[in-house]
Design a protein around this nucleic acid. Structure first.
Lengths: 116, 116
DNA sequence: CGATTATATTCCCATATGGGAATATGTCAA
DNA sequence: TTGACATATTCCCATATGGGAATATAATCG
């Protein structure tokens, strides 16, 4: 089995830095034409189109035709699974107070560990 | 250019679901032997070892020898870049009140857009 | 119509992948 | 030493990748 396709899910899609850059530009909520992204990011047009294709298949962006242009808009909710997963680890690098919770929870976990 | 190596950064490393599972098991803070992970996740030992190798090269886990076993421990801080990036999008799927902030910020962004 | 602009698609290629199977390495115990 | 156990490594392969270059598609304009 090779590596999972980039279009498998958000995790795979955002692994590519240029796709994250595209997402960042689209963050404002406003739809952007491909040409705008090309200019902003200084990435060749076919490359941008391909990356947008991946993001679209995953559902992270959606397109609409507007005359000659295709307007891409962010569907940020598709990033929620990534946030949900990584958020759990937030406490590992945040402040003092959370460390207490962390330790307490670890104890509880160890107590119930290796039951299966 | 092929896809970036899985060992490039945390984004690439966590794209693989089994590696996320491993991280999840290590979440308690306690170090785990490879064999424990094999049993818990029902994944062949060589596969687990390879995934641990990737995670180790990225710095997400660290190893220590303890007799015959190698104990793997989570270094969750390495996940912070992922959290930092995705956290910005949290407001897109959270409650009502944040939507106000969102709209306000969008207006401000649009005002200063396309200056470069 | 033809020309221009905007975007997508195709073709090419070097490359890393994840899994399976087999094997190597390392460590303990008798 | 031998054998059992724990883990890592190697070899194999089908496959998707991202980029470059070239080209196709599609819409607008004159």
């Amino acid at each position: 089995m090779p590596r999972a396709a980039t279009t498998t899910d958000a995790f795979n899609a955002i692994a590519e830095p240029r796709r994250r850059e595209i997402i960042d530009v689209l963050r404002g909520g406003r739809a952007h034409a491909v040409g705008e992204l090309v200019k902003r990011l200084r990435i060749p047009q076919p490359t941008v189109s391909k990356h947008l294709g991946v993001l679209r298949r995953v559902g992270i962006v959606s397109v609409s035709r507007h005359g000659q242009r295709r307007m891409y808009r962010l569907n940020a909710e598709e990033l929620k699974p990534v946030h949900d997963w990584v958020k759990i680890y937030e406490r590992f690098w945040t402040h003092q107070l959370d460390r207490i919770k962390e330790r307490a929870e670890r104890k509880a976990t160890e107590r119930t560990a290796d039951k299966g």
